[in-house]
């Protein structure tokens, strides 16, 4: 198992300009300059940001350690079949509705039990060591995909704010803008907005835990959680919060939106586990989309046992579902 280090010596900090082809890098600048920072001819004042999809090529070196035996899911499927209830509860709603979200400029407020609480701009996050990892993605609804994410390990972000000894949990909060997200405008709120999720600090610091800024060689489409989202591949998909605006390091275990809505259905851990059934879905097998038959055996920790089993040694995974 990989040993946990905040700044591993084998991962030197390389300026993005060196690892990214110049053409792509310039392209990246273009969009960083894009929607948010357009200046008016008159006063060179920033114009109000404009809602739009910002999907541009994003180069990152593939990490060969993460390459499941199955080929990545067709990009069109992964970007049109989404659970993102802030844009509606159907699978097709996010792809149709999410262009209304403004994703530039963007920043994440990082607070709580940290030595250096601060707001981190997307531009700074994009300079963290990005790599491409192909992860299995398993939804609690018993379907799965294989997704080539581009992102950086969460621990690199944590290193920027230096969690204190008191920090034991991390809470992630997603964006909630009523005027830009149609699913937030329902008469009865579907969930307790804003969407929040939580991890134990050691789970968050595990090298598998990714903050993703892209997929399929491009920046994230809005419906997949642009501009920056969490990816925790050994847990059910809903743990991987999208479009993150706030990260808090906490002493106490946070309660997520899904747990609040149905505590006996969505536990804090929500690790992929064929032995622990969800009240509505048997988790024994899964359907690797777009296959018709749910013929795949679900793997414990979604197949990432080697990397994460140590986090739960001695724990009753049924009681701590």
């Amino acid at each position: 198992m990989t040993q946990f280090r905040i700044a591993p010596p084998d991962l030197p900090h390389i300026p993005a300009s060196e690892i990214t082809p110049k053409e792509v890098f310039l392209n990246r600048r273009q969009w960083l300059a894009g929607a948010g920072a357009l200046t008016t001819a008159a006063g060179l004042l920033p114009q109000p940001a404009e809602a739009a999809q910002v999907i541009v090529p994003l180069a990152a070196k593939a990490n060969p350690q993460f390459k499941p035996s199955d080929a990545p899911t067709d990009k069109k499927l992964a970007t049109t079949y989404n659970n993102y209830y802030e844009f509606g509860t159907s699978k097709s709603a996010p792809a149709n509705e999410a262009a209304s979200l403004t994703v530039r400029p963007w920043s994440i407020e990082v607070t709580g039990e940290v030595a250096k609480p601060r707001r981190i701009d997307l531009e700074e996050l994009m300079r963290l060591p990005l790599e491409e990892r192909i992860y299995r993605f398993r939804c609690v609804e018993a379907w799965s995909m294989v997704v080539p994410w581009i992102g950086f390990e969460f621990r690199h972000l944590a290193a920027l704010v230096e969690p204190t000894g008191k920090a034991r949990f991390v809470r992630f909060t997603s964006v909630a803008r009523k005027e830009e997200m149609s699913g937030l405008r329902t008469a009865v709120p579907v969930l307790d907005w804003p969407y929040t999720e939580g991890l134990r600090l050691d789970e968050a610091m595990n090298p598998l835990t990714l903050m993703s800024v892209g997929m399929y060689g491009e920046t994230l489409p809005n419906q997949n959680g642009a501009p920056v989202r969490l990816v925790v591949p050994w847990k059910y998909g809903f743990k991987s919060a999208k479009s993150i605006v706030k990260i808090e390091f906490l002493e106490q275990q946070p309660v997520s939106s899904w747990t609040k809505s149905a505590m006996h259905e969505y536990g804090f851990y929500s690790n992929v586990n064929p032995m622990v059934d969800h009240p509505r879905w048997s988790q024994k097998r899964e359907r690797l989309l777009p296959s018709l038959f749910a013929s795949r055996e679900t793997e414990l920790f979604n197949g990432y046992t080697e990397q994460v089993a140590g986090l739960y040694s001695g724990m009753d995974l049924k009681a701590n579902f």
């Binding site: 499927l77 699978k91 359907r287 777009p290 296959s291 018709l292 038959f293």
Partner: peptide, 10 residues
């Protein structure tokens, strides 16, 4: 089947 979306069985 893809005309039925990413999850045709569903």
């Amino acid at each position: 089947p893809l005309a039925l979306g990413a999850n045709p069985a569903e």
